[in-house]
Design a protein around this nucleic acid. Structure first.
Lengths: 205, 205
DNA sequence: GTCTATAATTTGATAGAC
DNA sequence: GTCTATCAAATTATAGAC
């Protein structure tokens, strides 16, 4: 894709190209030349707009992390009832990943590479997930007797795992289960309802 | 860690060092110099024993993939009852990842990078997971009326996701839930029982 | 702002002594 | 087998013309 999409200016095209390359290959695997080619410009211009590779990466990473975390928080901190909250979490999260399938892989990957920098850049800006309220809500429901006794932390892990993991391991899953891209997409669409149903069946009294 | 652990010969130390570096940084992020330092030898010797970086990587990847996949298969293809099978899967898998926490991240990562090579090197050797029998088993139980109607594929995804995902996203989870390494380890130990219980509650009639 | 040409640095790989 | 020294290739970054 060397064609210049004249819609955007050079800076915009660079950002779009850098996002594509970084999010698919990661920081270590990305090449400045790849980004320049993808944007339809030359390497020098990359350095003109963004000082060096690290600055460019930082810009992209911040943007993607913003998509990944604040969405969780808005749901966790809302005043919705527990089950409604979980439904929203699954549904909105899968929707986001249907549009940006690379998102969880990219963010998790880079966080694994350097958890420290992650804290400063993402957590510092008050975008960190705050699961406390959600965990308390689970405990309340247990005390009210509406759901079975279950460790809130494990329930949270189950919820997040079932929602995100298929997107992280997508190539492995589609290959081993012989699924086409379309079939995968449809399966993920089904999971918006399957996961909440599964959880409700597991914990509701 | 420049110290030469005289236990092994040079080749053994190289393999151990390469394993550590590749599995934590990935192929793209790994440096031959890092591996040499870790092994307490110099770069030239790496090329003496293993022609080039790619050959060395291939050796490591094959070994790790063998740990990751055949284990699943042995369980999937056994004649154990459904619930027993799921319990074994969770338990043995978590046990493996407690010892090699990097394993799922590494394998998934490299498979994502190049799904084609993955097919040849791992799937070719008859080590590919064969979930067919497991999926049929679920359908039989549904027909017998012992478990609720549920899509076998979604049940399988749920099982795998809940088991593996916490290890893939470990740094993110421990940070956001304020867990120490020990607490994480203990939580994973608990999940050997929590996950099967969760699933049984969800699908048993 | 955008380009070409080139420098500087990093990294993988080899030559040759011991 | 193992090392030091060095090369070659890849990759990031800059200089300077337009």
């Amino acid at each position: 894709m060397v064609k210049k999409t004249k819609d955007k200016g050079a800076e915009g095209r660079i950002l779009a190209a850098a996002r594509k390359v970084f999010t698919t290959k990661g920081m270590a695997g990305a090449r400045m030349q790849d980004i320049a080619d993808e944007a339809g410009i030359n390497k020098a211009l990359l350095h003109y707009y963004f000082r060096d590779k690290d600055k460019l990466f930082e810009t992209i990473f911040m943007g993607e992390a913003q998509k990944f975390f604040p969405k969780i928080n808005a749901i966790f901190q809302s005043d919705d009832p527990l089950f409604e909250k979980m439904e929203k979490f699954v549904s909105e999260y899968i929707e986001e990943m249907q549009e940006n399938p690379y998102l969880p892989w990219f963010v998790i990957n880079e966080v694994n590479r350097d958890p420290e920098r992650f804290m400063q850049s993402v957590l510092g800006n008050d975008n960190r997930p705050k699961p406390a309220k959600f965990l308390e809500q689970i405990e309340k429901e247990i005390k009210k007797g509406t759901i079975k006794r279950i460790s809130p932390v494990h329930l949270l892990m189950n919820l997040i795992s079932m929602t995100i993991f298929p997107f992280v391991a997508r190539p492995m899953i589609t290959r081993n289960l012989r699924m086409s891209d379309l079939q995968f997409k449809q399966a993920m669409e089904q999971r918006k309802k399957e996961i909440p149903k599964f959880i409700i069946d597991a914990i509701k009294k």
